[in-house]
Write a protein that binds this DNA or RNA. Structure first.
Lengths: 192, 192
DNA sequence: GTCTATAATTCGATAGAC
DNA sequence: GTCTATCGAATTATAGAC
C-alpha cells in the first residue's frame, strides 16, 4: 500500500463501502469517518455523490465495451470470439472488482438522462454478444439453443465473479478461473 | 385484477417500485403517490419499512430452502437431485418474480442481526447445493470441476431469471425455460 | 381508512476561517 | 487540505381528528 495518493485511497475506501452497503446507503459521512476526517473534506475529491457514481460506472462500462468491440471486429470464428470475450470479461473483472460491483449493483441509482443512456449501452453489449451466439448457432458450432435466453444466462454466469475477487482471502489463479468458466459455458457440468 | 384486496394492491405496487428504484431509493411517499393517498396511510399496511423488507425477504428465502430440503432428503442420484433443484428454483422464480428481485437486489438493506442471519442462511443453501455437486463429481456423473466455483456460477445462471418474468410482455413457457436452462447447465452451448 | 400536522433525524452540499 | 458551522431538503414515523 505504498505510494498511493490520497485521492486513490479515498476512492478505494469509497468503493469498498459502497460494495458493502450499496450506493444509496453509503453516506458521505460514512466515507469521511472511515478516512478519519470531516464530511466537508469529501468535496476535496468529488464534485457530488452523483458525479462519482456516473464517472465510475461509465468508465468501467466503457472498458467492457472496448474489449468487446475489439473482438467482434476480428475475423475469428464465433466460438473463438466467444472464448475471447469470456476471457476479457474475466480479466477486466479481476482488475477492477469493486467497480464491477458498482456496475452490477448500483446502476439503478443513476438519474435521468444518464440512467436511460446506461440501459441503452448495456443492451448494445447484450445484443452484440447475442449476435455472436446466433452466428455460432447458424454455423453449427453451437447447439440450436434459445439465443436470447442463453445470452442473458451466459452473462449472468460471469457477472457474479467480482465477489470472488473481493471476498477471497488467498490469491486466485486467473488462468484456472478462465478454464473453469469457459468449460462450464461451453460444455456444462455433465461427464461425457 | 378483480377481487384483489387493498393490501394486496399495496404490496404489489410496493414490490414493483422497489424493483425499479431499489429498496433504499423507494420512499414511502413514492408508494403513497402511486396509490393516490397520503404517506401516513402506508402505515395501515405495514409496521415499518424495515419490517416489510424482512418479512418478504425471509418468506421467499424460506420457500427456496424448503424446496431444496425436500429434494436433498430424497434418494435420487446427484444428477437427478440437481435437475429437480433447478426446476424448483425456476418454478418459484416464475411464481414470485418481484420477491425474488428483492431477495437478489436488496438484502444488503437488512439491519443487524437480521442481515447476518440472512447471509448465514444463504450460505447454507449454497453449501447444500455444493454438496450435491461434489457427490456428483465423486460418483462420476459430473466432470472433475471446481465444485465451489461451479456452485456459484450455477446459481448465478439462475438468479437473473426474475427479470425475464417481470419485463417480458408476452407470456413465457415455463417448460421451455426449464429445458433451456437445464441444457445450458448440464451440457453447455457447444454442439457435440 | 383517510386526512393534516408535525416530530425527530439524517443527508448532501456550501461558506468561510485556518 | 482540514476544520466548524450551518442550511435546506428529504425521510421515517407518530398523534390525533374525521
Amino acid at each position: 500500500m505504498k505510494g498511493i495518493t490520497k485521492k486513490e485511497k479515498f476512492l478505494a475506501t469509497t468503493l469498498q463501502l459502497i460494495h458493502e452497503k450499496g450506493f444509496k446507503a453509503t453516506t458521505l459521512r460514512d466515507i469521511a469517518q472511515k478516512l478519519n476526517f470531516e464530511v466537508a473534506n469529501v468535496y476535496n475529491y468529488i464534485d457530488s455523490k452523483q458525479a462519482l457514481l456516473e464517472a465510475y460506472l461509465f468508465d468501467i462500462s466503457d472498458e467492457f465495451h472496448r474489449a468487446q468491440d475489439r473482438i467482434i471486429s476480428s475475423t475469428y470464428s464465433p466460438r473463438e470470439k466467444l472464448r475471447r470475450m469470456i476471457a476479457s470479461y474475466i480479466q477486466i473483472t479481476a482488475k477492477r472488482p469493486y467497480e464491477q460491483a458498482l456496475l452490477v449493483n448500483d446502476w439503478r441509482n443513476l438519474k435521468e438522462p444518464r440512467r436511460q443512456e446506461f440501459v441503452k449501452r448495456r443492451k448494445d453489449y447484450e445484443d452484440k454478444l447475442m449476435a455472436v451466439l446466433q452466428e455460432g448457432v447458424d454455423q453449427g458450432q453451437f447447439r440450436a439453443l434459445d439465443v436470447e435466453l442463453t445470452t442473458h444466462t451466459l452473462l449472468a454466469s460471469l457477472r457474479w465473479l467480482y465477489k470472488k475477487h473481493i471476498e477471497e482471502a488467498k490469491a486466485i489463479n486467473p488462468v484456472e478461473i478462465e478454464k473453469q468458466l469457459t468449460d462450464f459455458i461451453f460444455s456444462g457440468i455433465l461427464k461425457n
